[in-house]
Simulated assay, not measured.
Amino acid sequence: MTTLEAPEPRPLRRDAERNRQRILAAAVEVFADRGLAATLDDVAHHAGLGVGTVYRRFADKDALVEALFEERIRDLVGLAETACAATDPWAGFVGYLEAASARMATDRGLREAVLTPRHGQVGVTLARAELGPRVERLTARCRDAGVLRPDVAGTDVATLLHAVQAAADIGGAASPQHWRRTLGLLLDGLTPARTTHHPLPGAPLSDDELHEALSPRRRAGGR
């Protein structure tokens, strides 16, 4: 008599990785649509999984945000690096602003992770340590080439990116390309086409001042 062997159990590691990818895919859509105010319950529901499964893969929303947006922010870093290597400094500068703005305009979660980080440290760490210096280098190349106003700093460019994303919010679904108009207006204001410029009021923010201005504590009113 032949003894039937019991079927091998499904490998838990493979199931765990499958669930992790399912959670990340759902989080991409949920955060892109609702921003980082969406909850782990929202992500679990969208993924068709129990919230307990989500918590087994990610201890809290900060952990999920870090896992999800590190790659996307590194993509922005890559864009800035490519722009810095462009033969034409102005073309590289404009290309970076357009590409970065387009990515953030269509992904609310990415926009918040980069510009107003409240969850996790990936946005703060990467944006400050890797993205910020590249934007400063890109800005300096344009200043040195005489194609950018001599008084524009990298932190001014970071502030302009905020303004462009505010335009994306204003345009909303009714005018999803509205941010492009705002970017075009800002780019015109950055060029040194005039023989003279009115001095910009005040000084550009330092890197520390920009970091402090965008910190969750500051934006929450110091609570």
Rank of each mutant, 00 (worst) to 15 (best):
Met1Lys: 12
Thr2His: 13
Thr3Phe: 15
Glu5Tyr: 02
Glu5Asn: 12
Glu5Ala: 12
Pro9Lys: 02
Pro11Thr: 07
Pro11Glu: 03
Leu12Ala: 13
Arg13His: 10
Arg14Cys: 00
Arg14Asn: 04
Glu17Tyr: 09
Asn19Gln: 15
Gln21Asp: 11
Arg22Gly: 06
Ile23Thr: 07
Leu24Ala: 05
Val30His: 04
Val30Met: 05
Val30Lys: 05
Ala32Cys: 10
Ala32Lys: 02
Ala38Asn: 04
Ala38Cys: 04
Asp42Glu: 06
Asp42Trp: 08
Asp42Arg: 08
Asp42Asn: 01
Val43Glu: 02
Val43Asp: 00
His45Phe: 13
His45Ala: 15
Ala47Arg: 05
Thr53Gln: 07
Val54Phe: 01
Tyr55Gly: 06
Asp60Thr: 00
Lys61Leu: 01
Lys61Gly: 02
Ala63Gly: 01
Glu66Gly: 02
Glu66Pro: 03
Leu68Gln: 03
Glu70Asn: 04
Glu70Met: 00
Ile73Met: 02
Val77Asp: 01
Gly78Val: 03
Gly78Arg: 03
Leu79Ile: 00
Leu79Asn: 02
Leu79Met: 12
Cys84Ser: 09
Cys84Phe: 02
Cys84Thr: 10
Ala85Cys: 05
Ala86Ser: 13
Ala91Gln: 13
Ala91His: 08
Gly92Ile: 03
Phe93Ala: 06
Tyr96Met: 06
Glu98Pro: 04
Glu98Asn: 11
Ala99Asp: 12
Arg103Thr: 10
Ala105Tyr: 06
Ala105Pro: 09
Thr106His: 12
Asp107Ile: 09
Asp107Leu: 02
Arg108Gly: 13
Ala113Ser: 12
Val114Asp: 04
Leu115Cys: 06
Arg118Thr: 12
His119Asn: 08
His119Tyr: 15
Gly120Val: 02
Gln121Glu: 15
Val122Cys: 12
Gly123Val: 00
Gly123Asp: 00
Thr125Leu: 14
Thr125Ser: 14
Glu130His: 11
Leu131Pro: 07
Val135Asn: 04
Glu136His: 14
Leu138Cys: 03
Arg141Thr: 07
Pro150Ala: 09
Asp151Ala: 00
Gly154Ser: 09
Thr155Glu: 07
Thr155Tyr: 09
Asp156Leu: 11
Ala158Asp: 08
Ala158Leu: 15
Thr159Cys: 14
Leu160Asn: 04
Leu160Met: 14
Leu160Asp: 09
His162Trp: 06
Ala166Lys: 13
Ala168Leu: 03
Gly171Pro: 07
Gly172Arg: 06
Ser175Ala: 13
Pro176Ala: 08
His178Phe: 15
Leu185Asn: 11
Leu187Ala: 09
Gly189Trp: 08
Leu190Pro: 01
Ala193Trp: 14
Ala193Asp: 15
Arg194Ala: 15
Thr195Arg: 15
Thr195Leu: 13
Thr196Tyr: 11
Pro199Asp: 13
Gly202Lys: 08
Pro204Ala: 00
Ser206Leu: 11
Asp207Ile: 13
Asp207Ala: 15
Asp207Asn: 10
Ala213Thr: 11
Leu214Val: 14
Ala220Asp: 15
Gly221Met: 09
Gly221Ala: 04
Gly221Val: 05
Gly222Glu: 05
